[in-house]
Structure formats: C-alpha cells, structure tokens
Design a protein around this nucleic acid. Structure first.
Lengths: 223, 223
DNA sequence: GCGGCTATTGTTCTAAAGTACTAGGGGGAA
DNA sequence: TTCCCCCTAGTACTTTAGAACAATAGCCGC
C-alpha cells in the first residue's frame, strides 16, 4: 500500500513503529535507517517513497538541521518528525522547516495511526493538545511581559529609528533616510537604549527581536 | 450545538460564513462582530463560546496583534484565523500566537466545513497544501541558502565569538570571558563579518537570527 | 622540514557609537 | 500663559568597532 521509511537509531523503536504501521496500513513496504546518512542514501535510491518517519535525535540530525538537509535534497518526499520532545516551539519549527507533521513518542498507538492516516492522506498533523496549550513555553511572553509597555513608552520618532536600527542600519544611514541630523539620531538612540535598559544597540535589537513591528508602526503613523 | 462567533468586518463574508456553519453544524448559535473591540466585548459577555472565527484584516487587528490580545484576555477560548492571506509564514505565526487553525478564504466550502469539524473536535487544522509546499515563501531559505555553508566556514573559535556576539556582548566582554585579548576578538569579529558579508555586527546578528546555534555549537565542541 | 591554516597578540588609525549637556521651537494641558 | 514633553541640533568628549598590517606559535598533511 504505502512505502514508508522509518529513520530512528533505536532498533526497538523502529520495530514498534513498524508494528504500528503494519497494523494501521497492512501491506505497506517498510524501510529502515539508523542515521541521517543512510536515511538520505535510502531516499536517494528510492525517491517514490511515500513518507519518511524521522527521529529528531538520530545521529547526524543536529536538531532540525537533518530535516532541512533532507528537505533540500528531496523536496518532494514528505517527512514527519517523531520525537520524545513535546515543546511547542520545537514542533512549530519543525513545520517551518518542512515537516508535514509531528508525532510525540508518548502518543497512544491509536493516535499515532490516525496521525499517520491524516498525513498519508495529504493533510498536516500536529499534536493538538500541545499546540492548543497556551504556554508558548518559556521566552516570548513569560520572562518579558514588559515589552508592550516599554514599546508603548517609545515615541513615534523613536519607534521609527528603532525599526531602522533593527534592520542593521547605522546612525548615519538612518539620519540620511529620515532627513534629520546624525546627532538627532544619536539622541533618539540613547533614549531608546535607556528605556529598554540596553547598553548597546545589539542588545536593544535582541530585546525587540520577538516583536512584530508592523503593528506598532501603524499605531505610530496614526498619532 | 456549538456557539460560534464570527468576527469579520465584511457583512457579506459574515453571512456566507454563517451559512457554511449552519450547513455543517445545524442548530449552532451564531454571534457576529465587525471589529476587534466588539469581538472582545462579546467574548467577555459570553465566555463559554466554542470557537471564534477571526478575520486577520479586521479593524483593530493590526496583523496578529489582535489575536494575541484575544488570547491574552481569554486563553481558554479557541480561535481560528480566517484570511485571504496564503503565506506559509503568516500561518505558522498565527499558530505560534495561539490560533488553533488557519482557514484560507479561497478554500472550497466543503474544505471549510471539514476544517471546522476538525477544529471543533479539538484538533488543529492547517491548510495542508500551503504547509506542504516547500517554498517557505521568501526569506528563510530562499535568498540565503548560503547560511549553512557560510557557518560551516567559520572556525570553532569564530563560532564561539559569534555566539557571544549574538548575545549582545561587546568585544571587551567576549575577550574577558574567553580569556583572550580584545585584539584577538576583533580579529575574529572581522573574519566573521567578512565571511558573512556583513558590514557591522548588527547585520551579522540579523543574518544569524534564523540559525539554531546549538546544533553548530555541538559540532564545534567535537572538533 | 616546508607550506598552509588557525589562534594569538600587538599596533595604528579611522570611523562609528554613545553620553552629557545645552538650547531653540512647537504643541498640548493646566 | 506657563509648564512639560517632544523633536530638533549642535558641541565636546569617551568608548567601542572595525580595518589593515605585522608577527609569533602550533597543528596537519605532503
């Protein structure tokens, strides 16, 4: 029925997954690989493969780097990530890198089968319980709920300067593009750094890296 | 059956969507809102709502800012984004911001219903055709497929310096922490900028912003 | 051992970044 | 009108960045 490659360095898990697939999709042809190199080789030898079940922690993977490599070499071959990891950000990143789904190793057998069904049918499967959880894990909204207020405290000109800063522009360039003196730009930059609690522009940019500027820019324009 | 809020500034679309829902889920209670403010008000008045169908371009939304606001105030109320936008990055960002699904306005009626079914059943729905397309639109891997090679070309010390750079550290601090002279750090930084084609450290950091360092760091440690 | 690469450090110099202070003009609020 | 805040701009100064060049030392392959 289907031709599926199971890529995982644990023989035990490969066997278990093979049994799941055989249950859910009897008659399917199964291939196995234990590291990234052999995975790529097998896909290369057999490009009409229907799905690659890819372990995130396999030798050679280096996180999502392995997935990217697979996607680059064989863009037409769909891959689903299987991992013990249950972090929302990781899952979203996997999809960003081209995975057509994400299955957690802790999923019950039935759920795995329905996930595979969905994926083989051409859909995208993500573990809804994790995605729907409103903890985007750590970073973003957890350790800096200050961001909104701080950004609110920036004046319109400061925001404009700030946005250009985040694009890597120098004070001179910013001054040129905004038709103001460089000394004025410096004044704005100093104010921005003070408000953000940063000691240099790099830190300021890092603080702003998680911010969607467009929303604030519009607001600034309305002022 | 279900209680669903349709939030869209176009009455025509609200009507059409209402008909879709009435077809797919007869007997459902429908609420309507035309901007973000009234959407928040209605959800506030009625927190046992089953789903908010949220238009991305509604007044007050400012892109995904409106979704974030809704999620912050009512974390338990699921929201699905409906938009004419069909950009993969936008979709993934929406999910990151707490959407439980994304429906494109160009979807055929049948597909919309099945998407809503899936979402109301507790799953996550994403337009598989767009997600599976291997064009992560512009940015990421399109205009700089160079990143991997470039990063490979960095030596272990350069990577270590680079990582500290991306944390906003100054040359002096980096020198102190690595127990090397500042002049050495500068030499490394210069080499890094040259290899990345950046004119200053801010640009270098922006280039690296999409990179998962941990993977490379491990490699560096192995050398 | 020799050549090539990398790490290290230094020096010198120019440019950029950033602070502090001053100061005039404009607009909104009391 | 007065006060306050923002934008503007300048001066003066210190610090940091970054390029260019030179030099020593270690490691690896031929």
């Amino acid at each position: 029925m289907y031709q599926i490659l199971i890529a995982d360095d644990h023989p035990l898990f490969r066997e278990a997954m093979a049994r799941v697939i055989d249950d859910g999709f009897p008659g399917s042809t199964l291939l196995e690989a234990a590291d990234l190199a052999s995975t790529l080789q097998m896909v290369s030898d057999n490009e009409d493969i229907d799905l690659v079940v890819l372990d995130l922690n396999m030798p050679g993977m280096h996180g999502l780097q392995g997935l990217v490599q697979l996607r680059n070499q064989f863009p037409t071959v769909p891959a689903v990530i299987v991992s013990a990891e249950e972090d929302k950000n990781t899952i979203l990143q996997a999809v960003t890198c081209g995975a057509v789904g994400f299955i957690t190793k802790s999923s019950p057998r039935k759920q795995m089968i329905s996930a595979l069904e969905q994926i083989l049918a051409g859909s995208v499967y993500l573990p809804s319980d994790i995605i729907r959880a409103n903890n985007s894990s750590e970073s973003s909204r957890a350790d800096n709920p200050l961001l909104p207020e701080v950004l609110e405290s920036l004046t319109r000109k400061q925001l404009q300067v700030f946005e250009r800063m985040t694009h890597g522009e120098s004070n001179k360039v910013i001054a040129w593009e905004m038709n103001i003196a460089e000394s004025t730009v410096k004044a704005h930059v100093s104010a921005i750094l003070r408000k953000l609690g940063a000691t240099n522009r790099v830190q300021a940019i890092l603080i702003a890296s998680e911010v969607d500027f467009s929303a604030y820019q519009k607001r600034a324009g309305q002022r």
